[in-house]
Design a protein around this nucleic acid. Structure first.
Lengths: 333, 333
DNA sequence: GTGAAAGCGCTAACAG
DNA sequence: CTGTTAGCGCTTTCAC
């Protein structure tokens, strides 16, 4: 069983004071190398660990970063989207690499007063919000209260907190240009432009089309889930037949849902319809045909998010930043 | 900015002692209803939150549960597997519902001494381990040290800590029986039976085959990733042609990888090869053909995991438990 | 019903 | 280089 060893016990065992023991464990250069090693050795033997609650209280610092998954509702982009896992898991790694721990949260737990709950409540030193959501008031409120906070979202959004995310405009434009280059002329944007990041992708879509007089476009608004995409495309085909020859889907999950509907109705991808997604999830590579998509550099973004959060903790005011996107050309286009 | 309000400040504002303020905020019945409301009101106005570090120190309780993703190596089942996200996210919900918070961890951060780091270190009250891994010594060590701990894994494993998971044996048997029922006779098990859960699925596979004299089976060991499955099936087809007519894949990701290889070589699914996966990830429904699979009830399992962990915190000794599986019949079989 | 006071285990002045 | 000491902010026993 857990013998409840405290720093005081350990100090006594080592024949030193608690201050010496504390410093030794924190590798303070004030302590002689030899003493340090002896105490650390002793700590290992007695499997002693510093009481984090006590040192957090004392230091007024938790070494914890809270990550809030900020989805709009249940129906929106689902927590099942593998892309979210990728983002969270990359943030986790980045956080750990800086010696912090990751408290995983959602709006359910944190309520509306993020500053009060996490910061005043000394549960975390700062917050990473994944997803801007459609209403940003919770974020703004937290920032106004002085919360160190960064957001994964669309970096072009004007605001007083740093946002890190992909160049969604360029991503949308690149994807669309690619569809045009491949010969598609009647394009569909499948998604929901009201969502900040997707809005930028849609603007990119429009920008690419503006240069091409012979092409036409339609916006098809759907919930950003593969289910919704499947049903929507299915219904469109049934009702109006094939009225398009290219789809830019706002996410890979959406693209894959659309692709399923097409294949079921014997529409050939890429011959009849070319399709491009966004995110480069693992499935994009393994679907058949494999899915052309815009890759987001989540690893780099995660590092940036954490770096900017730590910069805030150090009193700086880091700015928003875009990470590069890359077209992954595969079979679907 | 964050005005640093403490309980003492709040008490002064309310004209009461800190003890009264503390009790009021914790809804102690000792305090008059009226006083309670007044103080809670005041707390809201000044957006006061109890300092969690301080109360954790005082109470010797964190109200935090650590979740450790326990993958074997980098190469094994990838952190990208959407099934893992589902599990973690369901655990997160279950944890929150019990008023606990979720500290997301991995072997990197926790090191080898989980008890020391999390429990003695007062970072969490208990641990949920996701995945047994191939070596269980870290888990056992933690349990011996007295860590409240539960594992998502194969509940049939004999051990002195509770494991919650699906009935993998029945899952494997059901999947295989289904393949046989659909007429497949030359079956492949695609996966790695050394892994506890997968071993049970393999035993189920063998059990179903034992009842069917006309069928034969081969075990194809691979890393449990879609990539590995794709490459393996590809190579088998190239080298030996089509030597099988049914695949039981140990996970949906593996199944989807195999399916891609089959389709690329114009092997029809389900006509030439019938295929069944395991997990019922979102993609199973949206792939084309959609994937027949064994659904795991992650929601129920998550509730059980957390309930059993809390039971341990209350001094009980809960036992392992299986959750039911369900065959989801779709197009791939 | 409420208050006074002790102490959870740690860290960092300050003093040697 | 090391020790003494004073809290960090909260909860709870004990007293009233």
């Amino acid at each position: 069983m857990a013998s409840k060893v405290t720093l005081a016990d350990l100090a006594k065992l080592a024949g030193v004071s608690t201050s010496t023991a504390s410093r030794a464990l924190n590798n303070s250069p004030l302590i002689k190398q030899e003493t340090r090693e002896k105490i650390q050795e002793l700590a290992k033997i007695h499997s002693f660990s510093l009481n984090a609650a006590a040192s957090r209280l004392r230091l007024q610092k938790t070494n914890v970063i809270a990550v809030i998954i900020n989805l709009d509702d249940e129906t929106e982009q689902s927590i099942d989207d593998p892309f979210l896992l990728k983002v969270v898991s990359d943030i986790n790694l980045a956080v750990n690499r800086q010696g912090y721990e990751l408290l995983l949260s959602n709006s359910y737990m944190a309520g509306d007063d993020w500053h009060g709950y996490f910061i005043s409540g000394r549960r975390a030193d700062g917050i990473v919000v994944v997803g801007q959501g459609k209403q940003q008031h919770r974020i703004e409120r937290a920032v106004e209260a002085g919360t160190p906070l960064v957001v994964w979202g669309d970096p072009k959004t004007a605001c007083n907190y740093p946002i890190v995310g992909s160049d969604n405009f360029l991503g949308g434009k690149t994807a669309t240009q690619h569809l045009l280059d491949r010969g598609a002329r009647r394009l569909v944007f499948l998604g929901e432009p009201a969502h900040a990041e997707l809005g930028e992708r849609y603007r990119g879509f429009q920008a690419a089309l503006a240069d091409c007089a012979s092409a036409d476009a339609q916006l098809v608004r759907i919930d950003i889930t593969s289910q919704a995409a499947y049903q929507q495309i299915n219904q469109m085909l049934r009702q109006d037949g094939l009225t398009f020859d290219g789809i830019f889907a706002c996410s890979d999950m959406v693209a894959l849902g659309a692709m399923k509907a097409l294949k079921e109705r014997y529409v050939s991808v890429p011959n009849d319809v070319r399709i491009v997604g966004f995110d480069n999830i693992a499935m994009a590579d393994i679907s058949h045909p494999s899915l052309t998509t815009i890759a987001q550099n989540t690893k780099q973004a995660a590092e940036l998010l954490v770096a900017k959060l730590l910069a805030q903790l150090a009193g700086e005011q880091p700015s928003s930043e875009q990470v590069a996107i890359a077209l992954m050309q595969r079979q679907s286009s």
